[in-house]
Simulated assay, not measured.
Amino acid sequence: MSLETHKTALIVGAGSGLSASLARLLAKQGLQVALAARDTAKLQPLVEETGAVAFAADTADAGAVAGLFDAVQARFGDPDVVVYNASGRLRGPLVDLDPAGVERVLAVTAFGGFLVGQQAARRMLPHGRGAILFTGASASVKGYARSGPFAMGKFALRGLAQSMARELAPQGIHVAHFVIDGQIRDAAHQGSPDRPDSTLDPDAIAQSYLAVLQQPRSAWTWEVELRPWLETF
């Protein structure tokens, strides 16, 4: 199935790694790509490579998120594909965690997902089509020690995605959640030479996102779990 009905993609929480792989792949598919991040300067190399347009936005701010979608609509029209990659992390013993820091993690990881999902749905519903994709993690389904805030945020994001999928699928909008259950390969995490593919290749993950976008609506999935074939945990 082609992506002929998809013209514009908005990747929120963009950066290197998975977001960059998605931007490259979707641009090759002929989509106009918009990238959103708090710091757009870091996106300049990717913008030059893919022809994407970068927008500054704080995903935890309702006004900023609404403004982001207005800006994308003015430049490209309503986005057909919206990917939420933003998340926050705070590690440490439970008794030592700063409540303000925990609040920020939840605001970015979960509340930001709601804000972006809501704005995307408002713009897709009049068209009766579109796709909203949420990036999860191992912490979406299992909470690790000293990582409570991240698990709280990712559990909430997964619940949001499941609820949205059940509500919006009958109205033509495909909502899917991706459990990235392992370390994504980057410059600092290449994996051990004697254990090839022990980390997830971001380009390979992007191909799975594309496969979901290409699913016929008679067989949509709401969740995909991806992990390296050699697990280290």
Rank of each mutant, 00 (worst) to 15 (best):
P79N: 03
W229Y: 06
V102T: 03
A120T: 08
P149S: 11
A145C: 07
A37W: 00
E223F: 06
R195A: 13
R123I: 04
E103L: 06
W220K: 07
V141Q: 09
A14V: 00
A20N: 01
L226H: 06
D197E: 14
L31T: 05
A52G: 12
A64H: 06
K7W: 01
L226M: 14
E231Y: 01
R75P: 02
A60C: 06
W229P: 09
R195Q: 13
K28E: 14
A219R: 14
Q73M: 09
V105D: 01
A187K: 10
G51T: 03
E231V: 13
V83F: 01
Q183D: 09
D201Q: 10
I173C: 10
Q183E: 11
G15D: 06
A137K: 07
H174Q: 05
H127E: 13
N85I: 04
M124D: 04
P216A: 10
A9M: 05
G51D: 10
L35T: 04
R104W: 00
F55A: 03
A36G: 12
S21M: 06
L168V: 07
V102R: 02
T199W: 04
A219K: 12
H127K: 15
A120L: 07
A120H: 04
G128Q: 11
F55W: 01
G101I: 05
G112L: 02
V53H: 12
T40M: 07
E49Q: 15
M1N: 11
T135H: 10
W222K: 12
L133T: 04
G77Q: 07
E49V: 09
L26S: 04
P45N: 11
S147P: 01
L133W: 02
Q171T: 10
G191F: 07
V116F: 03
A139F: 00
G182K: 05
A66S: 15
G30I: 04
D58N: 11
T135Y: 01
T5M: 13
G101E: 03
M152A: 14
H189I: 07
A139R: 06
A151L: 07
L125V: 14
G136P: 12
E225Y: 08
A176E: 09
A110H: 09
D70P: 15
V47C: 10
E225K: 15
E49G: 12
V33D: 01
A54V: 07
L230Q: 11
H177N: 10
A188T: 09
V102S: 02
T232C: 00
I173G: 03
K42N: 05
L160D: 05
E49H: 09
Q207A: 15
L31V: 07
V33Q: 02
G148M: 13
Q162H: 13
E49K: 14
D78S: 12
G153Y: 03
E223K: 06
S147G: 08
A27S: 15
R104G: 01
D61L: 11
A169H: 13
A107G: 01
I11Q: 03
R129Q: 13
F111Q: 11
L106H: 05
A169M: 14
